[in-house]
Each structure stands twice: as structure tokens, then as C-alpha cells.
Simulated scan of single mutants.
Amino acid sequence: MRGEPYQSDMFCAEVKNYSQPGGQGTHFDEFLAKCYVAAQIQHHLSDHFMWITWSPFRANSWSTLSSADQVEAAVLQHRSRVFGTDDLDEARKLLDPELARSVAARLWLIVLSEKQETLLPLKDWEAIVAAELTRREGSW
């Protein structure tokens, strides 16, 4: 990533270019569980976790999708893959609430539209920005 406060941060992203919500909720829960595991093993791309979609989903609970409670619920839902156990009580004991809060704090929910895809910088401006970044930092 470029620009403060994210300069040189790395991210993992899952992209769902769907025209309708479909099964995004199910995929999102799986994504959250994967983010938890990535954060747990301190994966080098886990400064931020981005869910990028073209179709909103779970509109009635949108404001809580990036909450620690949602991360915890997703991890417990996928407990056999995350913790290697089907026992819910055992999984609850293994779950790290602080790690779930950390994942939630790093989570980005991005909804795009086809029209937004046209908002690309002009090639002339892209060249100017590349030249300036190269001058300042030594590489583009």
C-alpha cells in the first residue's frame, strides 16, 4: 500500500465480482476464518484484510460484519478447519478474543460498482505520479 498511514503495509484480499448477493455471506464467514488463521501465524500479507465485492450482502447486519463478534462466530463456525476439532466448547477455549479483535480492526469491506471502475487515473497523471514516487523512494 502507498500513502500514510498505510505506507508499505501488505494486505490479503478476496474479490467477489458478483452481480447479485448469492452466497456471499457463506463465503465471507469462510474469509473471516482464513483471516484469523493468517493473523494467528503472522502471515506476511496480514496487515489488512480486504473483502471487495460489487454486490452488497447481509444488508440488515452490514454495520456488524467487521466486528470481533462476527470474526469469532465465523471462526467457531469453521472450527474443524481452524482448530481441528468439531467440539464447540473446545473450540471456544482455543479461540483468542484479542486476535479476533485484531482481525476485525484490520478488516476492510469495499463495495464497488462498474461505474467506479472507470475512475482510473489518466496515463499522463500516472506517469507523473510514478516519476515522483521514484524520485522520492527510489522505486515505483
Rank of each mutant, 00 (worst) to 15 (best):
E4V: 12
E4W: 08
Y6H: 10
Y6L: 12
Q7I: 15
M10K: 04
M10Y: 01
F11V: 04
A13E: 03
E14K: 06
Y18V: 07
Q20T: 11
Q20L: 04
P21I: 05
Q24K: 08
H27C: 02
D29A: 09
E30D: 07
K34Y: 02
Q42M: 07
H43R: 13
H44Y: 05
L45I: 06
S46I: 09
H48A: 13
H48E: 14
F49Y: 13
M50K: 03
I52H: 05
I52F: 03
R58K: 15
A59R: 09
A59F: 00
N60F: 02
S61F: 02
S61K: 13
W62A: 15
S63F: 10
T64E: 06
T64K: 12
S66H: 13
A68P: 03
A73W: 00
A74I: 10
V75N: 00
Q77F: 00
R79T: 06
R81V: 11
V82G: 01
F83K: 05
G84D: 01
G84W: 08
T85D: 01
T85S: 07
D89L: 14
E90K: 10
P97D: 05
E98G: 09
V103E: 05
A104F: 01
A104M: 05
A105L: 10
L107C: 04
W108D: 10
W108C: 12
L109R: 07
I110F: 05
L112C: 14
T118E: 15
L120F: 04
K123T: 11
K123F: 13
V129N: 02
A130V: 05
E132R: 15
L133G: 07
G138E: 04
W140V: 15
